[in-house]
Design a protein around this nucleic acid. Sequence first.
DNA 1: CGGACTGTTGCTACCAACAGTCCGGTGCCGTAGT
Length: 445
Amino acid sequence: MMLPTGTGKSICYQLAGYYLEGLAIIVSPLLSLMQDQVEQMKMKGEKRVVALNSFLSYEEKQAVLSQLSAYHYLFVSPEMLQQEQVLAALKQQKIALFVVDEAHCISQWGYDFRPDYLSLGAVRAALADPVTMALTATATAAVRKDIVTKLQLNQDHFKEWIYSIDRPNIALSTQIFQTQKEKEAALIETVRLQKKPGIIYFSSKKKAEEIAALLAKELQIKVAAYHGDVEAMDRMKLQQQFLHDDIELICATSAFGMGINKGNIRFVLHYHLPSNIEAYLQEIGRAGRDGGPSIAYLFYQKGDEQIHHQLRENELPEDDLLEMAYQNGITAIEEQVNEVQYRFVKNQLNQGISLADAKKQRNELIGKKKKQLNEMLDYIQTAQCKRAELLKHFGEELKQQLENCCQSCGINLTEYQEKERVIQEKTQEENADWQAYLLKMFNLC
DNA sequence: CGGACTGTTGCTACCAACAGTCCGGTGCCGTAGT
């Protein structure tokens, strides 16, 4: 099922699981998503729900596994399903429903970053081919086909529910800059005028931190940086603060997003371009969930794509490393490769793939990523309607002409901007408020 | 890969031209050590 976030993806498996006999397994990509879901379901009165993950101690995990029949919903990561003990315990149960949430992860992460996503098909087979539901908000036709194949769904017995990816209330702005200075100046000006809250996306953790500090200083707004190096506890806090409008702006890498359910995000700005169009759509799709007028800005400067070239080249092992691993075993290259490279080689070896095929698969994957980045660059450059381009990528056609559509069709920016006078009054008022509050707290007035 | 930044050279007094260096994402798991 492909349907936009906020339209009730969770209820699809919750309701089905409720009426079916047996256990519903929900595969989820993030621990925080699992915890959220479990908490929400418990709050609504469903107690037979548990998340089996590394938050549990050894004893707790054993306890869950030994009394699986007491549960109706089980949240797990794809990695957890690879553990023999877990799979063995699940095999003893009647599986009512096998759900893959955020199913685009299969295609997006399975080939390198999180290979256990590709083994979900084997898990399904081991569980005697249970009824399966794959859910996502953004997947191209190719990705959907990949999901069906990798999950080993019966080609004749599956049905797709596909909804439009178009978000008419999000205007699509793209701007091209000659130097970094120009881009930064435009960023400050845009953020100053733009209605908040908002998210700014970066391809670099360092840049996210840097700009967060700059904006805090220049505009005196409540802003925080969010990326993979931020501690889990701090991440949770930031999410909560953002959710409650205590923080009005987040400077983030792609780490920020999944599971962010906030209605009033008024803009998403890309300081760096994302690595592909689907990622772009996912990221801008976090704006305007409440249906209110929102805008996506994409700032591009020639050369910005180099980050992605470099990341891609470092991601997978070169020929010499592959050859060494195939000759002398995986341990021979352990010291020279990163975790993702190591796992890629290990997987190829474990699956008995030949050296020539391993090289071929690596090259195909790199080629696919190059193509995806080029599509992103084409989108930035095109003088055609941006919305029509995005829709075309997902096999859709633009049906209606919008008033505020995109850079090519024209956007009336004032629709999305604060009136500066109002901001200043508000800030002064807020300042007075917290100062008075502090004084009162310390009994100074 | 190519822009941004830093340091050196070269010619001559303040700075232009060039060479060299650096950058750079996403999460699960188990285990060891603090």
